[in-house]
């Protein structure tokens, strides 16, 4: 059984620029007051968001 990677956001690093929401091709990241929110069942793990993030707050585990 393969397990897919989980997207983790380091809220201390995140500057809430929401650029990740802008670049996600499948709307798997959404705005919320606390910062971007991951919608797991839409995610294709393309990694565009983690590449984009200016502060590397997004990582995969």
């Amino acid at each position: 059984m393969t397990s897919e990677k989980i997207l983790l956001i380091d809220r201390n690093k995140c500057i809430r620029c929401f650029g990740c929401v802008a670049v996600c091709p499948v709307q798997a990241l959404e705005y919320s007051k606390e910062g971007p929110k991951w919608i797991e069942n839409r995610c294709t793990r393309c990694k565009i968001c983690s590449n984009f993030c200016p502060v590397k707050a997004i990582r995969w585990a």
Binding site: A22, V23, V55
Partner: peptide, 8 residues
């Protein structure tokens, strides 16, 4: 990602 710049 090629049509956007990441700014900080």
């Amino acid at each position: 990602p090629f049509l956007v710049d990441s700014g900080f």
